[in-house]
Design a protein around this nucleic acid. Structure first.
Lengths: 222, 222
DNA sequence: TCAGTTATGTACTGTTTCGTTAAATTGTCA
DNA sequence: TGACAATTTAACGAAACAGTACATAACTGA
């Protein structure tokens, strides 16, 4: 009886009705893949696992992205794009240079903190020697803006005599990035080795303001 | 003729003479595995590849380390141990606090720079949520010293009135670590996105001194 | 309405990779 | 000298995994 019924349903496979939604499917796959890659790394992520977590099938991943590398590549681009566009909201032109720099630093600190998946993808990309980033012209353009933004603030600060000369906007950006990035990237091991005083709730608020202090003290005069 | 000889040698397998050297074999495996894990990540590294690069066989890896995770665990411990013991050489007691802090910072910067494999293992461990570090009591002990060292310098600086109060040794350590670590960990992507001005030879010398500046300005008075 | 194209589902395949087995040989130390 | 530890070699098994073949449903535009 059981087997009879099985045989019958086996014959008349009742496909579910479905709507075509290529963009939705693509987006859904990318979203799931980002989480999975960020969580397990490039080699650690499993295509079957990603597929299972999408609302579609493995077939579609290969249909849209070719292979695992292709999928990772798109995830990388997408992630950079989202994060960088998220940074543009910030309006600093009307602020005094010191205040602008503090705001920018604290914003970056928070922004990284809120986007751990991005941080982890960048870590993974570094582990893989930037092999995929190398071949993405798209991404390079997005990042020059970050430097210009700082340059504007820095020049203004020089003009007003509140910043010391001899800093480069690139180095300032590096400094802000380093502190904001490390805070997320090494949270786990740092906490394990030294306790979570810097990474619990109050600790983070305090650390953020200390990071801003450090950046300001580095650039400001006296 | 050829095949005859082959058959014969096939029969009398001439084993090479070998010395027993368990410690040597273990060390050799760990060395190769470190490079391989650091280069490819935990999931990316292949046991067969590691085996091929050792002077011994895959069998021995399993003989000594059980499985891939066991091997990785030992690599992790070994790497932390080596790096931390390498840090102990530094003698700072006789220096003035500011000078001591500058030396410590520049030393750490160089030390990380010379140990990219360690950096990469720590990155990998963070990617894996510190799962393996969690279970290693051994490692935790090694790291408290780093804090004490800074505390000694900081307290002396407070006494002498050259450091401001309100910093914590932990935060100072975090700051030094962050900058020294990020310099190595994100070298690839940062260079790709912003050029190698900070990472070519002169760039690194300059950056090191700027990092020390930043740390000193953060801690010092006025 | 129907032909051609795009999108999707199901089941499968071939390979990679971890880990093991088996049996022999050599070194070491009490 | 005998027991035990270390090592070699070669091949195998099973599971995990990336990727594919094939069929079919939905859409589009003429």
């Amino acid at each position: 009886m059981e087997s009879q019924q099985q045989a019958e349903t086996g014959k008349n496979i009742q496909r579910q009705r479905w709507k075509q939604d290529p963009e939705g499917v693509r987006a859904n796959i990318l979203e799931v893949a980002l989480k999975e890659f960020a969580d397990r790394g490039l080699s650690g992520a499993r295509m079957d696992e990603i597929a299972a977590k999408t609302r579609t099938s493995k077939r579609m991943i290969y249909y849209y992205f070719g292979d695992k590398d292709g999928l990772y590549r798109k995830v990388l681009e997408q992630t950079y794009r989202e994060v960088r566009t998220g940074e543009k909201e910030l309006m600093l032109d009307h602020l005094a240079p010191k205040e602008a720099l503090r705001r920018l630093t604290e914003f970056t600190f928070d922004h990284h903190s809120k986007n751990p998946d991005f941080i982890r993808i960048v870590m993974i990309e570094n582990i893989h020697h930037g092999e995929y980033l190398k071949h993405s012209d798209l991404i390079r353009g997005l990042n020059q803006e970050a430097i210009s933004r700082i340059e504007a603030i820095y020049d203004k600060g020089l003009d007003q005599g509140v910043f010391r000369s001899g800093c480069s906007p690139l180095a300032i950006h590096w400094l802000i990035s380093a502190l904001s990035f490390f805070n997320v990237s090494n949270r786990v091991t740092f906490s394990l080795l030294f306790g979570d005083a810097l990474h619990n709730r109050e600790g983070q608020l305090d650390l953020r303001s200390q990071v801003a202090d450090a950046v300001l003290k580095f650039v400001a005069l006296e």
